[in-house]
Simulated scan of single mutants.
Amino acid sequence: MEDTTQRAGKDVTGSGGRGSEDRLTPGMRLRLAVAFVLPPRFTPDSVRYDRRYRKLDQYRFIVWFLAAPLLVYGIFVVSPFVQAFFYSMTDWTGYSSSYRFTGFENYERMWNDDKFWDATRNSLLLLVVAPVVTLALGLFFSYMLTAGGRRRSEAVAGVTGSGLYKIVYFFPQVLSLAIIAVIWARIYSPRSGALNAGLDAVGLGSWQREDWLGSSWAIWCVLIVLCWSFVGFYVVLFSAAMSSIPNEIYEAARLDGAGRSLTFFRITFPLTWETVRTGWVYMGIQALDAFALVNVMVPEHGMDVLPSYLFSKAFRDGQAGYATTIGVALFLITLVFAAVMMRIGRRDRIEM
């Protein structure tokens, strides 16, 4: 009985000792903090063999591994955004180092600027319509090239010459947007443009316009060029996603009597949704950044989108502070759009 009592007392004492060891003293916290920034070879043995150090060592590897990329990202990406927020509250001209802090005057001016709201409406129209049209065409063409042509020996197969079609569709991606804008500006030219000449050749002369790019049709002309220039990229992107779908799934659908439309909406589209969602965000950002097309194609004051209006205020009017305010608005629109699309487009992952 006495031995049992002594052993129990020792156990209590031992557990109490371990509990005291588990408590971090200020000195131990300091040693662990120093060990976090020191290389492992310089870590004292009194810290190296502590179980808390082993956990700390795992986080140290992750932190040091990400330190350099995060530093570069902070300097070249985050820092310009912070500077833009600061300069949006100044009257900086962009041509001198002097400026005056004005608070929210630029934001109040932007709120009452009719031209800003016209440019915003044009940008939002492109943001809504361009991804829908471009992704719909990309999905249709990629499905036809990947699974639209059936053969007796295969469950699914692309149409004849699908490899050549992919090259043709992707060709606009090789060209610069500035070159595309120049080519289409010539097509829309009222005197020697191919559009008016083509309409006249097929007996639709009443549809001709004297100024396609200087009227209310300008936004729709830019929209057509934007969709045409990017649809090839999504044809290749969606074709790669559809090619990763196992043929056994298509074979099972074919045995069940599913047609092309039912196969697309019940199999192909759900299994490529993650790619479609990513493409939607990317195309929306491209639609918001239609500066090159508008600046090259559309005559001055014909129409504006947010990037072109920002450019005119910064480099033509010398109002860099107000231009950065417009840039902040464009940044917030892009951020909200990406967040909403990633949120509403979320769905349970389909396990193969």
Rank of each mutant, 00 (worst) to 15 (best):
A240D: 15
A241G: 15
A241F: 12
M242F: 12
S243V: 10
S244N: 14
I245T: 06
P246T: 00
N247T: 09
E248V: 01
E248R: 05
I249L: 05
Y250G: 00
Y250T: 02
E251L: 02
E251G: 04
A252Q: 06
A253M: 05
R254H: 03
L255Y: 10
G257C: 05
A258Y: 05
G259M: 11
R260N: 08
R260T: 05
S261Y: 11
L262P: 06
L262D: 12
F264K: 02
F264H: 06
F265N: 00
F265R: 02
R266N: 12
I267L: 12
T268L: 02
T268D: 00
T268C: 02
F269L: 13
F269E: 07
F269Y: 10
P270I: 04
P270S: 04
P270G: 09
L271H: 14
L271A: 10
L271F: 15
T272W: 13
T272F: 15
W273F: 15
E274T: 15
E274R: 15
V276G: 10
V276L: 14
T278A: 14
G279Y: 14
G279N: 11
G279L: 09
G279T: 11
W280A: 13
W280C: 11
V281M: 13
V281D: 06
Y282C: 01
Y282V: 14
M283G: 02
M283N: 07
M283W: 11
M283V: 05
G284H: 01
G284A: 03
I285H: 07
I285D: 05
Q286F: 04
Q286K: 13
A287E: 06
A287D: 03
D289F: 04
A290E: 00
F291V: 07
F291H: 07
F291M: 09
V294W: 01
N295T: 09
N295D: 10
V296S: 03
M297A: 00
P299A: 00
E300T: 13
E300K: 06
E300M: 05
H301V: 09
H301E: 12
H301W: 11
H301T: 09
M303L: 15
M303K: 09
P307T: 00
S308W: 12
S308G: 07
Y309R: 02
Y309W: 15
L310N: 04
L310E: 05
F311S: 08
K313S: 04
K313H: 13
A314R: 02
F315Q: 07
F315V: 09
D317R: 13
D317Y: 15
G318L: 08
G318S: 04
G318A: 02
G318W: 11
Q319G: 09
Q319L: 14
Q319V: 09
Q319H: 14
A320T: 08
A320Q: 07
A320G: 08
G321E: 07
G321Y: 11
G321W: 13
G321M: 05
G321R: 08
Y322M: 12
Y322S: 06
Y322F: 15
A323H: 01
A323I: 00
A323M: 00
T324E: 09
T325E: 04
V328Q: 11
V328R: 08
V328Y: 11
A329E: 04
A329I: 06
L330E: 06
L330Q: 10
L332P: 15
T334E: 06
T334C: 04
T334G: 10
T334H: 01
L335Q: 13
V336H: 07
V336P: 13
F337K: 01
F337N: 01
F337P: 00
F337E: 02
